[in-house]
Simulated assay, not measured.
Amino acid sequence: MLLLLLLQISGSCLWLGRSEVVTSFESSCPQFFFKETPPNEALEPNSPARICQRYKNQYYFATLYDRDRRIPVYSAYLYQPGSGKRPKTWMVEPQLMGSVYPSTMEREWTLLNYFNVTSEQLSKSQAVLKDYKNLTGLNRGHLNPSGHHPDNSSRTATFTLTNIVAQNEKLNGGAWKNYEQQTMIKETQGCATTYVVVGAVPGNNYIANGRVNKPSHLWSGVCCEMDNDERKAWAVIAENDRNNIQLITLGELEEMLTKLYGRDQVSLFDRDCPRE
């Protein structure tokens, strides 16, 4: 009996050690950041959650999540586009409810039916599918897009609501889509490794009866390590009510975000990534 108890305690510790909601990106999933350096604290919300996005026992990207507004602040990933079908399964992050829940993203149905979770518990901790129903002029916009990943598992991992914001549907299907699918291919020519941090600036409006924030802007910063040991960078920003994006320098994006957030100077990458 004592041996069984010790094994149960040991198993619980291992389970918690695999936690997806982590205290530090640097110690848990640093590989998604240039020189293993996440953005500085100038973007951090009042109630942050750092998520190493796990699917099928593997990390695929990192997300800083705003628990209060129920939207991601940013998602960080490696740009590795590949061909394949667009996934259809939407998932949520169980550990936003607590560390006793699974350490890998799951479907809402699975949590409600197999883990004794109530709809109230789940929806209190994060956005759920119901929040994105019956939207007008908006849809579920990926920060980290599935098309920037090489295989079915990595693309499916982006279909978590912790990677989603309410995005203007014309922007999502227009200028932003063109950037993700065309401009990125052009700009990454010669890149050996491409680090991306894509985010959303909180706005003054909400959907789902005030539960989920509608961002005022969407943005993306890119740091590219080239084959010749040189580096280049670029960025984009878009207002979330217009079908238009601005292609700018990384330094310009950081200055714009510093003004939009109104806090300390924003730094998205290690200083060795060029700002001009």
Rank of each mutant, 00 (worst) to 15 (best):
residue 70 R to S: 12
residue 46 N to H: 13
residue 130 K to V: 10
residue 41 E to Q: 15
residue 7 L to N: 11
residue 120 E to N: 14
residue 137 G to R: 06
residue 48 P to L: 05
residue 164 I to F: 05
residue 194 T to D: 07
residue 139 N to Q: 11
residue 177 K to Q: 09
residue 176 W to M: 05
residue 164 I to D: 03
residue 176 W to L: 07
residue 272 D to Y: 12
residue 17 G to L: 08
residue 91 M to I: 09
residue 51 I to P: 01
residue 54 R to T: 10
residue 135 L to R: 04
residue 59 Y to V: 12
residue 14 L to I: 13
residue 205 N to E: 15
residue 168 N to I: 04
residue 243 N to L: 03
residue 163 N to M: 04
residue 235 A to E: 02
residue 246 Q to N: 04
residue 67 R to H: 08
residue 120 E to F: 12
residue 227 D to Y: 15
residue 184 M to H: 06
residue 104 T to I: 13
residue 4 L to W: 14
residue 140 R to N: 10
residue 99 S to F: 14
residue 211 R to H: 10
residue 94 P to T: 05
residue 3 L to S: 14
residue 248 I to K: 06
residue 90 W to C: 09
residue 64 L to P: 00
residue 210 G to C: 04
residue 270 D to E: 10
residue 132 Y to N: 03
residue 226 M to G: 09
residue 79 Y to P: 04
residue 184 M to V: 09
residue 7 L to V: 11
residue 133 K to M: 12
residue 218 L to I: 07
residue 184 M to N: 08
residue 74 Y to D: 01
residue 117 V to H: 02
residue 17 G to R: 07
residue 4 L to N: 13
residue 107 R to L: 04
residue 23 T to M: 14
residue 180 E to I: 00
residue 40 N to W: 06
residue 38 P to I: 04
residue 16 L to G: 05
residue 254 E to W: 03
residue 141 G to A: 01
residue 264 D to M: 07
residue 239 E to T: 08
residue 146 S to Q: 12
residue 266 V to A: 00
residue 18 R to P: 07
residue 172 N to K: 00
residue 224 C to I: 11
residue 24 S to F: 03
residue 239 E to I: 07
residue 97 M to V: 02
residue 265 Q to L: 14
residue 225 E to Q: 13
residue 40 N to D: 10
residue 122 L to N: 06
residue 39 P to A: 06
residue 3 L to Y: 13
residue 106 E to M: 15
residue 8 Q to S: 15
residue 254 E to Y: 03
residue 243 N to A: 00
residue 23 T to G: 15
residue 115 F to S: 02
residue 258 T to E: 00
residue 122 L to Q: 09
residue 163 N to Q: 05
residue 268 L to I: 03
residue 71 I to T: 06
residue 30 P to M: 09
residue 128 V to T: 11
residue 61 F to K: 09
residue 182 Q to T: 09
residue 203 G to Y: 02
residue 159 F to C: 13
residue 251 G to C: 10
residue 187 E to C: 00
residue 174 G to P: 01
residue 23 T to W: 14
residue 96 L to A: 01
residue 54 R to I: 06
residue 116 N to S: 13
residue 94 P to I: 04
residue 234 W to H: 13
residue 81 P to F: 03
residue 81 P to T: 03
residue 137 G to V: 06
residue 19 S to L: 09
residue 51 I to S: 02
